[in-house]
Amino acid sequence: MSTDIQLEKKKIHPYQYYLWGGLGSIVMMFAGLTSAYIVKKSQANWLDFELPNVFMASTVVILISSFTIQMAVKKQKEQNENQYRGFLSLTAILGLVFIILQIQGFKALEANSIALIGNRSNSAASFLFVITGLHLLHVLGGIVALIWISLKAVSSKNNIDNPMPVKLVSNYWHFVDILWVYLFVFLRWVG
């Protein structure tokens, strides 16, 4: 029996596979969109414009949030409930700030007469809107997950014993962080 349990311990949790598979799916979706962007850029009617600086600020914010989620993982290991919940909340707040900054970025473009959608729009700006908008929705999903595990940690003391939820959410959060860095570099320099 003890051997069985040791064997089980070596197993990767099935939800980890779900997450990796799901991340693979998300990578493919953004690979599809950025490939389409490259194809479209090489065709006529492409509008070149500068990315507003606010996107730089949002990049810094999401990078910091990766640090705070990692601190939450550390505090879970140390079984420090208050700080665990604190870092989870801080990460969620940084996520919200990121979303607000992204929306500010869209507004800055509109203020510069660069329409994102509608009849006056150029597909260069529309691509930026769709790609960053979809990424924003993924961050929003991460915030929902953060709130969920924070509430679980409040409602039941036992939940801090289980490392799996915060491990999964932190993996996802680092992923959307790296994904944004890729998209930012792509949209600012490559695209």
């Binding site: 693979g24 979706m29 690979a31 389409a36 769709v130």
Partner: peptide
């Protein structure tokens, strides 16, 4: 898992 998301991205556009 690897190809349906690309279709989805096409549908979003």
């Amino acid at each position: 898992v690897l190809s349906f998301p690309v279709l989805l991205s096409g549908f979003i556009l």
